[in-house]
């Protein structure tokens, strides 16, 4: 079946989704994180009544408002792409996948958008108490939006709470609570929102560092940095904890992704985690070469992370592709056989049902049910197709972890010199601080690349490969819209950054003004 598909179109559709998602993810983590910090600033203003805190709150609120608009625009385009480029996906799993997306729009986003208006335009128009309440509701609403989007994404990684309907050939939800409380959804939500708070802290530190270097708005910058460094330090500790939990879930339900993240081709007992390494681009699956041309490993840590036991076995890519009877791992070729049986029997069931042959339909359905968990493998032609791009997954994972290790040290340094009241003299730290927001963005992008590229070739893990999930379009059509979006998003980004830079240059209103 797969050989009839134009793989180029799939790659363009994936590239278009990745482009939109990465643009979207410039704006979203800032929204998710900075709303909590703005709520904090606003609370201090409410308690103290200080005009200085009011101006500080309004300044960060303005930057958030500029950011918010384009986050919404790119998010809507992402949802439309499910219909335009991934219509088979929408048709096959829309009953399940559409539910959290609809809830996000109707429940969380409307809540967030309504209170956003009160927060932004409510100064001196509503009571101080209701205004503060609105700011808090924006933080809660935006994070509730993240809940539902991440529930949808977690379902792609581990499709729980569903049943395949052989009559309609669609997946249908049979347990809403299982979908919502999917452990991957919970670990994704906590990891994503805490790392967003970390990112927002870096954003505030970058801008405030620039003010201190320029000798402008110094008290406001010192206050902003003190709060951001605390939020950043606490959230970065939680990011490490939730990252460990997220990796454990990956190891349990997506072992191929974990093996790609670590460039592990041959499974090991007491497997070590790669501290530093480089992927060998000449490596072919099944040859005698190591997957990494050089590596520094810490023994036992990967086994501990994957199975909570430092001596346990972690399967490598070749164990998962070719099978490992000693560890009861079924190879992909066996799964392909079972998947093709499932597809053949599904076809036989439909024909028998149409002809009114109840006995044949029942027999076919029984065979289908016995093999349905391998349904997606029936669309693959050779075992090696089940392996994601190892180099990109490995490099993205290690970049994310490396940056995630640096950030708490940055927050600690800013906190220490703020405490000592000598931050203004630390020019080296302030200069480094101005670029921290970009490193935060790279860490976030890397995380999503690990999550999405590491899941390939699946749109829905083990059930639906991307080659089947797509719309029947030509590659040229999708390539055209890819470049249209690239130009549109770049113009939007230039517009946003220039408006934001102008606001930063103007700075917060000073009390004496």
């Amino acid at each position: 079946m797969i050989e009839n598909f134009d793989l180029t179109m799939v790659n363009w559709a994936r590239a278009q989704f990745a482009l939109t998602a990465l643009y979207h993810w410039i704006f979203v983590p800032l929204t998710l994180g900075i709303t909590w910090i703005i709520a904090f600033y606003h609370t201090i203003y409410y308690r103290t009544g200080s005009e200085e805190w009011k101006n500080l709150t309004r300044f960060w609120m303005t930057l958030f408002g500029i950011n918010f608009a384009i986050g919404v625009a790119t998010g809507i385009i992402l949802e439309f792409e499910f219909g335009t480029n991934w219509s088979n996906y929408s048709w096959m799993v829309g009953d399940i996948f559409g539910a959290p997306l609809a809830i996000e729009g109707i429940f969380a986003f409307f809540l967030e958008a309504t209170f956003f208006a009160v927060m932004f335009f409510g100064w001196n128009r509503v009571s101080k108490k209701f205004h503060l309440f609105s700011t808090w509701m924006v933080a809660i609403g935006s994070n509730l939006s993240a809940v539902w989007i991440l529930v949808a994404n977690a379902w792609m990684q581990r499709p729980v709470g569903q049943v395949f309907n052989p009559d309609s050939a669609r997946f249908e939800m049979n347990n809403f609570a299982e979908v919502v409380f999917n452990p991957i959804a919970v670990s994704k939500f906590t990891h994503t929102t805490s790392s967003s708070m970390l990112f927002a802290s870096l954003f505030i530190i970058s801008i405030s560092s620039w003010y201190l270097l320029k000798g402008r708005h110094e008290k406001m910058a010192r206050r902003s940095i003190m709060v951001a460094a605390v939020f950043g330090l606490v959230s970065s500790a939680f990011v490490g904890f939730t990252g460990d939990e997220a990796a454990y879930e990956v190891a349990q339900h997506q072992p191929m992704k974990l093996a790609a993240m670590e460039g592990l081709y041959k499974g090991e007992e007491g497997a070590g985690i790669v501290l530093m390494g480089m992927v060998d681009s000449d490596k072919k699956i099944g040859d005698d070469q190591d997957g990494l041309s050089f590596k520094i490993k810490i023994p036992g840590i990967l086994s501990l992370l994957a199975n909570r036991s430092s001596g346990s076995f972690v399967p490598g890519i070749e164990d998962l592709v070719y099978g490992n009877p000693d560890h009861k791992i079924m190879g992909v070729d066996d799964k392909i056989v079972k998947g093709k049986i499932a597809l053949t029997q599904l076809d036989a069931y439909k024909k028998a049902s149409k002809n009114g042959d109840t006995a044949a339909a029942t027999a076919a359905l029984t065979m289908f049910q016995a093999n349905k968990e391998y349904l997606g493998y029936g669309f693959l032609t050779k075992p090696e197709e089940a392996v994601p791009p190892v180099g990109l997954t490995f490099n993205a994972f290690h970049l994310m972890v490396a940056l995630g290790t640096v950030f708490p040290l940055v927050f600690l340094a800013f906190l220490y010199f703020s405490w000592k009241d000598t931050l203004k003299e630390q020019k080296w730290l302030l200069k480094g601080g101005t670029v921290m927001v970009f490193l935060g963005l790279f860490a976030h992008w890397s995380g999503w690349i690990v999550a999405e590229v590491g899941r390939q070739p699946w749109a829905i893990q083990d059930l639906l490969p991307v080659t089947v999930a797509r719309t029947n379009l030509t590659a040229g059509t999708v390539a055209t819209t890819f470049f249209m979006f690239l130009i549109l998003f770049t113009l939007l980004l230039i517009a946003e950054v220039s408006i934001m830079l102008r606001q930063i240059n103007i700075g917060p209103k000073e009390v004496s003004e």
Binding site: T43, P183, S194, R223, F241, E245, L415, W419
Partner: peptide, 30 residues
């Protein structure tokens, strides 16, 4: 684990708030 993670998430926000207020007061930035 789900409940524990979500409770820790709430604790992250509460601890950040309390620590930030305490430090602002200590450094006369409140």
């Amino acid at each position: 684990m789900n409940t524990f993670l979500l409770l820790c998430w709430v604790a992250m926000i509460v601890v950040s708030y309390q620590a930030a207020i305490a430090l602002l007061k200590k450094t006369d930035l409140y």
